[in-house]
């Protein structure tokens, strides 16, 4: 296993988390998610010693799905709705960044205290996963535009994928493939909904979704 190469990629993904938290332009948010997806897709190659067709398939499917197809759909939704910037977010960009940076440090500290198998102890997989999940939640809660929230959801999913890499050799790949399919379909459906919401409200601002309340 190529630990240093893997850690480099995870570090890159963690940096992209911070970029996503600090960016006000939806297009750069989508680009950050796309790069993160590609980095994630390359990781299974570094985790395995020998060539395995299943792992290769998972890796290529991840790269194409997370790195290309989903960002393409998001970009199309963005242009259709004329949404360029996140305006007046619930959690500002600087507080989001500070939260994200603090969360990353906390994630590293947390991972130290968890029992890990010797082959995983040297990797950043667990802190990377926790930091990405946290980033995803900050974006989900702190952003108003539906597209930014979908990007947050994707980063959350990426964090879970990072954690899943711990198990990639232990669990049957059928489960992994099924999970990948579900993720893609889930975002696809969300994309359709975004499209519909736009037609119904002429805006992608989820703050206007407030009719249903007590």
């Amino acid at each position: 296993m190529n630990t240093s190469g893997l850690n480099l990629l995870i570090g890159l993904a963690m940096g992209l988390n911070l970029l996503a938290l600090g960016s006000g332009r939806v297009s750069s948010l989508i680009r950050a998610v796309s790069f993160q997806g590609m980095a994630l897709g390359a990781m299974p190659f570094l985790l395995s010693h020998e060539f395995s067709p299943w792992v290769t398939l998972v890796a290529i499917a991840t790269m194409v799905g997370k790195g290309w197809v989903i960002p393409l759909l998001l970009g199309r939704a963005m242009r259709a709705a004329h949404i360029e910037r996140e305006i007046d977010p619930l959690i500002g960009f600087v507080p989001s960044l500070l939260l994200g940076a603090g969360g990353t440090i906390a994630a590293i500290a947390l991972a130290r205290s968890l029992p890990l198998r010797p082959e995983h102890a040297g990797t950043l997989l667990v802190p990377g996963a926790v930091a990405s999940i946290l980033t995803g939640f900050i974006l989900l809660i702190g952003r108003n535009k539906a597209l930014s929230q979908v990007c947050g959801y994707l980063i959350l999913e990426n964090g879970i994928y990072l954690f899943g890499l711990l198990l990639i050799h232990a669990t049957p790949l059928l489960v992994e493939a099924g999970i990948l399919l579900d993720v893609t379909v889930g975002v696809f459906v969300i994309g359709i909904i975004v499209d519909r919401i736009q037609r119904a409200f002429d805006t992608l601002d989820t703050r206007k979704l407030t009719v249903l309340r007590e």
Binding site: I193, R196, I197, A200, V211, L212
Partner: peptide, 8 residues
């Protein structure tokens, strides 16, 4: 519109 909101 209410159904859209609920679905989202």
């Amino acid at each position: 519109p209410r159904a859209f909101e609920a679905t989202w």
